[in-house]
Simulated assay, not measured.
Amino acid sequence: MSFHPPKPLWLAYVGLVLTPLFWAGNAVVAKGAIDNIPPLSMSFWRWVIALVVILPFGLPGILRHRRVIRQYLGSMLVLATFSVAAFNSLLYYAAISTSATNIALINATIPIFIALLAWLLLGDRTRPIQILGILLAVLGILTVVARGKLSVLTQLQAQPGDLIMVAAVFSWGLFSVLLRRQAVPLPALTFLTTQIALGTLVILPFYLIELTFFKGGFEVGRATVMPLLYFAFFPGILAYAFWNHGVHKVGPARAAMFMYLTPVFASVLAGVFLGERLGLFHIVGGVLILAGLFLATRKTPARQ
């Protein structure tokens, strides 16, 4: 009889701290590399590399559960389109015309969009405190998008990248809600491998259009290969593994609190590596977003 000692709990917390750091790095590295790698090339090759790495581990599960995959293929294709394909592609497009700090702040509102869409599409009960949180977070997004100026909203002068990032977050929220509605009975690794494969196929025709008619390719070198490797390993495979492990060990409610670190890490990294400076609208918008997140995701104690 073999004995496997439990892993220390602190390892789960280390992983939960590293996960938002990797997510923040996704925005910062994308912003730094966008002049060298077109956005769809960035998205496509990120997932190709991730697929090559994960396929040897995920392929046995795909073969073992191929009947389930065939049964849920349509649902999984839709899920992969909104998550693997659309979310990351839109995020990289956003990097063309907005800052890494803005990307991270808007990205931090994912739980808000999930709660809002779950209420609209699934009829989830929403408490007054959650509604207040959603309103505060939306106000925070508008503050960031408007750069603290009401005229930006009234005259429709928002940066395209901010609006594209809102669309990216909406896409991930829709994926999360649809995943709840159409749960796919697959092990985590099998599901992830299948999602990456399907999402890469969805991106492929758009990547070929971009390659042929718009941005063209990119030169293979340190300035392009290193960002792609980062995207594949850190915000891709490792963040997913660390997040799942952390949720399993400490619970989803406590793990969700670590998401608040993403805009903090992003602002520091963007300042150090990209020279981005925080404006007053970043601070005000960030406080509103984080307050909204706290209110919308906190669990009220059960009544005695």
Rank of each mutant, 00 (worst) to 15 (best):
F57K: 03
F242A: 11
L9S: 14
A86T: 15
P5V: 06
A168G: 05
V247I: 14
W23D: 07
L120K: 10
T19S: 03
R127D: 06
K249T: 11
V220S: 05
R180L: 00
F294D: 02
L229K: 06
Q195M: 11
L295V: 09
W23G: 11
L208Y: 08
A118M: 00
V272W: 13
L73E: 02
L280K: 01
A146M: 04
H4Y: 12
L278Y: 12
L174F: 02
V264G: 06
I110G: 05
I141A: 08
F233C: 06
V177F: 00
M257D: 07
G217K: 00
Q182N: 14
T212E: 06
A104N: 07
G140Q: 13
P205L: 02
W23C: 05
T200G: 10
V48Y: 05
A146G: 02
T212S: 15
T193F: 08
F87A: 00
I54C: 12
F214S: 00
A253D: 13
V48Q: 09
T212Q: 15
F231V: 03
V284A: 12
G286V: 11
L278K: 09
P263E: 06
P39L: 06
S43F: 14
P301W: 10
P263Y: 07
T194W: 12
P39C: 05
L269M: 14
L91C: 08
L16Y: 13
D162K: 05
D162G: 04
S43W: 07
S89V: 03
T190S: 05
L105R: 01
G275L: 13
P227I: 00
I34P: 08
A188Y: 09
A241P: 02
L73D: 09
Q195N: 07
V145D: 09
S75Q: 09
V84D: 13
I62Y: 06
L274Y: 10
P60V: 10
A158I: 02
A296L: 08
A12R: 12
Y72Q: 10
V29G: 03
P252F: 01
W47G: 05
R67N: 10
T81H: 00
L278H: 08
L105K: 05
Y230L: 05
G292S: 09
V53R: 00
I34R: 07
P20D: 09
L178P: 03
L269W: 00
R46A: 08
L136C: 15
P227G: 10
F57W: 15
E210I: 08
G74K: 10
L90A: 06
G140P: 14
